[in-house]
Amino acid sequence: MPGAWTLLSWGPDGWLDDIAYGAFITVSLALATLPIGLAIGFLVALAKQSAEPSLRLAGNVYTTIFRGLPELLTLFLVYFGGQIGLQKLFQLFDPNATVDVSAFVSGMIALGVVFSSYASEVFMSAFKAIPKGQYEGGHAVGLTSWQTMRLVVLPQLIRIALPGLANLWLILLKDTALVSVVGLSDILRQTSIAARVTKHAFLFFGFATLVYLVLSIISSFGINAIERSVDNKDMRR
């Protein structure tokens, strides 16, 4: 019966290398989802705060749906629905086609839409915190509305939205664990395999939670560094 330290060691006897690979997958999934979620979230926020009622409606329907569905169900809808839909599509051309949807990509899409619907709310409240005079000022010095957005509004927006977005990043990091259910070899799946093979379930699942804790602690340090770097000293009143 190997001891706990042997089981958690690097190499053929231990599982540390497998779990490290899982951690790599978890972090890359979260990092790959982040830009998608931020981009869609920003666009949805723009739509929700525009003067055009139909755009606002479209944006609100988006957030209502993807904030109301459980993340796990969204993932299954994307994973199985994507598989069935793509299969039907390819069978129009080739009746024998079979499609396998990658768990990583479905995870990216599902977590991306969930992240974006929450991020749109964060951006929305940040938009509300920016006074109207900023837009008018930008207009008055002759900037186009795109330039006003890029040069005047966005730098302030990021500073206001950062705490909310940092919170969403931590939630995203934890939600990646769900993708293990559709077979992505992330931290939780790798430790589940280890637990099943070695029968040391408590050791490995406990270790998995510690790895997630370490990831969130590292994230908090990163977030603090970013917050310090965008915190403009001259702007402080």
Binding site: K174, A177, L188, S192, F202, F205, T209, S216
Partner: peptide
Amino acid sequence: GTPLLAQTFLVYYGLGA
């Protein structure tokens, strides 16, 4: 700081050990 899924596994499978 940890996923609810991992906590649930820790209780259900982990304590089973």
